[in-house]
Design a protein around this nucleic acid. Structure first.
Lengths: 140, 140
DNA sequence: AAAATATTTGCAACTTAGTTGCAAATTTGG
DNA sequence: CCAAATTTGCAACTAAGTTGCAAATATTTT
């Protein structure tokens, strides 16, 4: 039984001209299912029985980064967080919200921040990301 | 000879009710001098001869974080970056620019981003940070 | 100013997150 | 199915940060 998500993952790999392997499909599926940026550890956790070495996970993420299917979000300083780029424009990612009480991070995919595109004192801005801190609905 | 910066650092520690030690003064001076967020390693580098153990640096930064004199910036995923809070308002930090070519990070202290204060779908926003990627004047 | 108390420091050891090299396994194209 | 190209897992390693504890330093008390 090959699920919808499975096909989506395979499709994605194919159009990115990446070898379609079990590990990559699994990682992509985890990212499709997630509603927030994930670390390698969280991805491994999602996979459960369907285990892949952390090196493989990192290398997969690296490949997906290179072709632009995923990107990194700045959630915590000590760990890389990855998410699909499909909710973001070329020049701007949706904002991320981190709760100072429970520590959880949420994607505010429905929120648009004004773009500071162009240049500023010689700096050519290609991409912008916004991060919020505060209280999430559950903690407020 | 006790420099201007020295006094400023001591003053800062005093008003934060922190023990005024050589290590803390040194770290604060390094941060005052810096024009961008620094890692522990960079701070240690700045200190040169005036060496303090990395544990001390981290613990000092932790103390300064707690009293709000410094905060963390999101520059790279694998290392904590610290800077003084004095260029930021309570609710918003100045944007940081990271060059995709040379990798250097700059503070855009003269740039104001519109605030997304208040709430959004139950999320209560206290603080916001913006991060840019692109080409710095030197690389462009 | 010395003693008493409170806090910080450095060291060694440890943890966590991520990376590298390489042989074995898998995928793709013919 | 074969050959070439690429990916995988393992073991070992690096980088960044943390913890416990005794010795050192800062502040407060007398």
């Amino acid at each position: 039984m090959r699920s919808d998500l499975d096909l989506k993952a395979r499709q994605t790999l194919k159009s990115a001209k990446l070898y379609c392997t079990a590990g990559r499909v699994a990682v992509l599926k985890a990212l499709f299912k997630a509603d927030k940026p994930l670390t390698q550890e969280e991805i491994t956790g999602q996979l459960g029985q369907n285990h892949f070495d952390k090196v493989t996970i990192y290398r997969t993420l690296e490949s997906l980064l290179k072709v632009g299917v995923v990107h990194q979000a700045f959630v915590k300083n000590r760990a890389r967080h990855f998410e699909l780029s499909h909710n973001c424009s070329e020049t701007q990612c949706h904002p991320h919200f981190t709760c100072t009480s429970c520590g959880k991070t949420h994607c505010l995919t429905d929120m648009r921040m004004p773009k500071a595109q162009g240049r500023h004192r010689g700096f050519i801005i290609h991409r912008q990301q916004t991060r919020f801190e505060g209280l999430c609905p559950a903690c407020a």
